[in-house]
Design a protein around this nucleic acid. Structure first.
Length: 238
DNA sequence: AGCCTTTGACCAGCG
DNA sequence: TCGCTGGTCAAAGGC
């Protein structure tokens, strides 16, 4: 039902794969956007990989690798360490980078184009407390703390040279639910909808939403879809 | 006023 | 001990 509520808005952007056991993976403009505990409770990465492999590979082979990678992270102890995908499809020329979660940069568009560069739209509030150029300055690494009182969770976000997130490392576990919708409005309303989508009453589900953070280089086969999405955002339509 | 990012300084671990 | 590296602090300024 959450999917039904959400998909009407995001139908331009979503590719989705529903698996037989009820798992539902969302791929938002190439980002592996949402993992919920209910999605992840049963399968190991290996199982998911095999299930995904049974699907039409034409949907997006990279997606299967992302799903497998994220699931591996899900069941591993912290810190979570996600390596970047080795391959990504070619983007249309007007669009070099779109990350629905935290970075949305459209190049070749007017200066009014949307740029979302926030630490996370994962339902938690983060405060950046440092940034370092690591690995010889090749990859700037940002350090974030959860702003919730008494919550010690920290997140390290590593960016590639072109600004894409190539690695997110979480340390600790949240001791609270995700924050209210209020702050999500800061992200142009998109995340508010995501919150609706993931707004299960099951708090244990919410606690796993960090995995929404995995930003990936976009996998877009239809530039027009993004153009229409951008129009919607620019019109201020939440 | 409160919260945020930025950024140089500082600190700890390691070879 | 020294230098390097990664992580954190905290002042300053912006929104």
């Amino acid at each position: 039902s959450n999917w039904d509520r959400c998909s009407s808005w995001f139908q331009l952007a979503f590719h989705h794969i529903s698996l037989r056991n009820g798992m539902c993976f969302l791929l938002v403009q190439g980002n592996f956007e949402t993992f919920h505990e209910q999605d992840l409770a049963l399968p190991t990465a290996q199982v998911v990989h095999s299930k995904c492999s049974m699907l039409d590979q034409a949907v997006n082979p990279s997606f299967i690798r992302v799903a497998t990678s994220a699931l591996t992270s899900q069941h591993a102890s912290y810190p979570v360490n996600v390596t970047p995908l080795p391959e990504v499809p070619t983007l249309p020329p007007q669009l070099s980078s779109v990350n629905a979660e935290s970075t949305c940069v459209l190049q070749g568009l007017p200066s009014s184009s949307i740029t979302l560069d926030r630490p996370a739209v994962d339902g938690y509030n983060w405060r950046k407390y440092g940034q370092k150029a690591v690995k010889g300055g090749e990859y700037p690494k940002s350090y974030y703390k959860c702003t919730h009182r008494d919550c010690l969770v920290r997140k390290n976000v590593e960016h590639s040279a072109d600004g894409r997130i190539v690695q997110i490392i979480y340390r600790g576990q949240h001791t609270h639910e995700r924050s209210s919708k209020r702050r999500f409005k800061d992200y142009g309303g998109i995340s508010e909808d995501l919150d609706d989508f993931s707004g299960s009453t099951d708090t244990s589900v919410r606690s796993q939403s960090d995995y929404q953070d995995y930003c990936r280089k976009p996998i877009i086969s239809n530039g027009d879809m993004v153009g229409r999405l951008v129009e919607k955002i620019q019109d201020g339509d939440e």
